[in-house]
Amino acid sequence: MSIQHSDNAAEFVAHSDDVFGRIASRYDRLCDLFSFGIHRMWKRRVADIIAQEEWQTLLDGATGTGDIMLRVLKKQIPASRRIIASDISPQMLAIAQGKLGQHGAQVQLCQLDMHSMPDIASGSVDAYSISLGLKICQRHLALQEALRVLRPGGRLIILEASNIRPAWLHRAYLMYMAICTPAIGWLATGGDASAYKYLLHGVREFPGAEQLAAEMLDMGFCDIRYERLSLGIVAVHIARKPG
């Protein structure tokens, strides 16, 4: 039986609310505030995984300020490897350019919508990564597009919100988020409510690690495995396009 995919965990529509454009200059600081700095450990781990995979061309969707791609490049990956760092927000890409500009020979920055990337040819990339962006898009469309652009045998690497085990601890975490996230977000953004509304809703509604793995399998990916980080606040999923 085919799994029914919810469209968008955060109920975020980029063309309707340019929240990431508004908070681009404060985005890295907000990540520190919302996660108490733990996101740095998550990013180190996913950068390690990406760097260790075998690829020559990597497409990174929702690259944001370029934080994770910078960590990948610092792994001293072979000079022949090429990264396409993409995001829908030009303001975020401008900040990424400041971080990644010194690696210009290996990095190409592109403004792309993960739901549809006609500029990227089918079967043209060896690996596709997306970190903390799948919950703010229509994930079934984004995953279908990832499957399209990957070559047969190509790798998909995802870092995203997940489910803490045991379940009672996950419920406690969501309760903490519901109480503390609005207060932190309101103070940090000067009252921009949308900046934390999407985060809170996306974390609450995004599927757990097992369900996301099942959705990926249902869509056509294979060899799926995942690793929970920080008890399962987030998880890294790795999958392969058949072939």
Rank of each mutant, 00 (worst) to 15 (best):
Arg71Cys: 05
Val72Ile: 07
Val72His: 01
Val72Cys: 14
Val72Asp: 03
Leu73Trp: 05
Leu73Cys: 11
Leu73Asn: 04
Lys75Val: 07
Lys75Thr: 06
Lys75Cys: 12
Lys75Asp: 00
Ile77Phe: 09
Pro78Cys: 06
Pro78Ile: 06
Pro78Gln: 07
Ala79Trp: 03
Ala79Val: 12
Ser80His: 12
Ser80Tyr: 14
Arg81Gln: 11
Arg81Lys: 10
Arg82Phe: 13
Arg82Val: 09
Arg82Tyr: 09
Ile83Lys: 02
Ile83Arg: 02
Ile84Asp: 05
Ile84His: 09
Ala85Leu: 04
Ala85Val: 01
Ser86Thr: 12
Asp87Met: 04
Asp87Ala: 05
Asp87Trp: 00
Asp87Gly: 02
Asp87Lys: 05
Asp87Cys: 06
Ile88His: 03
Ile88Pro: 00
Ile88Asn: 00
Ile88Val: 15
Ser89Cys: 12
Ser89Leu: 08
Pro90Val: 00
Gln91Asn: 15
Gln91Pro: 15
Gln91Glu: 15
Met92Asp: 06
Met92Arg: 08
Met92Ile: 10
Leu93Glu: 09
Leu93Pro: 07
Leu93Arg: 01
Ala94Phe: 07
Ile95Val: 11
Ile95Cys: 04
Ile95Arg: 15
Ile95Lys: 13
Gln97Pro: 02
Gln97Glu: 09
Gly98Arg: 09
Gly98Glu: 13
Lys99Ser: 04
Lys99Phe: 07
Leu100Ile: 09
Leu100Val: 11
Leu100His: 04
Gly101Gln: 00
Gln102Thr: 02
His103Cys: 04
His103Ala: 10
His103Lys: 06
Gly104Lys: 03
Gly104Glu: 13
Gly104Asp: 12
Ala105Gly: 11
Val107Thr: 09
Gln108Leu: 12
Leu109Thr: 01
Cys110Gln: 11
Cys110Gly: 08
Gln111Asp: 00
Leu112Val: 02
Leu112Phe: 08
Leu112Ser: 07
Met114Glu: 09
Met114Thr: 12
Met114Asp: 11
Met114Ser: 15
His115Ile: 08
His115Val: 01
His115Lys: 13
His115Pro: 02
Ser116Arg: 05
Met117Ser: 12
Met117Asp: 13
Pro118Leu: 14
Pro118Asn: 14
Pro118Met: 10
Asp119Gly: 14
Ile120Val: 14
Ile120Trp: 08
Ile120His: 07
Ala121Gln: 13
